[in-house]
Amino acid sequence: MEHYNMNLTLKIWRQKNKNDKGGFQSFQVKNISSEMSFLEMLDVLNEQLINDNQDPIAFDHDCREGICGMCSLYINGKPHGEWKGNTTCQLHMRAFKDGETVTIEPWRAKAFPVIKDLIVDRSPLDRIIQAGGYISVNTGNAVDGNSLPINKDDADASFAAAMCIGCGACVAACKNSSAMLFLSAKVAHLALLPQGAPERHSRVMNMVAQMDKEGFGACTNTGACEATCPKEISISNIARLNLEYLSASIVAEK
């Protein structure tokens, strides 16, 4: 791919804190290399702002290699930008043309209040995990891994669900701000394995209840979450979650 430099206009959401009203602010960045990542481009802008004694733009990031789930950003109308199966940190500037205007917004959901600028509070997802995303493990000697046979297809499907990095792009993309793709990945991951069996029914009930409590919307199977997910989690996990929920509600004792 040929290297080129570009000048961009950035329309970025600025918000001082949770209670501030917030609004868009425009910035110009010059000589951005097409080989930079999107976050490096923001680093350049922030250095510029710091040199001018202005408040730099707050955004989430950590590993910058597409596996931690920390980066967010709703870029030009799509979570994590235009590329498919990609996180913001792995979005490179060759995705943009010289002179383009790029609009950057935080994840929008009432369950994800803005902390500052582009950073939102995603701890509701942690609390959903705490409500049931765990398994019981005996103390004592470790069991030999080969003593527990698992169907290869189930193991693969479970692993595909376990790929979820909990970034919240599914919530950001969903017209209902629903966390169902996230929740379904976590439930399917454990429901497919024998290790997840002891808490199977209580897990799905408690995690759904927690999701509702956190103020996410309900799923309407539009598929926007699947299309935007950086780890390409399948929407079939949501159907699997529904089945888990239905069967748990049928067998529940109380």
Binding site: K11, Y74, K175, G217
Partner: peptide
């Protein structure tokens, strides 16, 4: 579901 977004996206 509509009440769950809060501020709408610009794009």
């Amino acid at each position: 579901n509509r009440s769950k977004r809060g501020i709408q996206y610009a794009v």
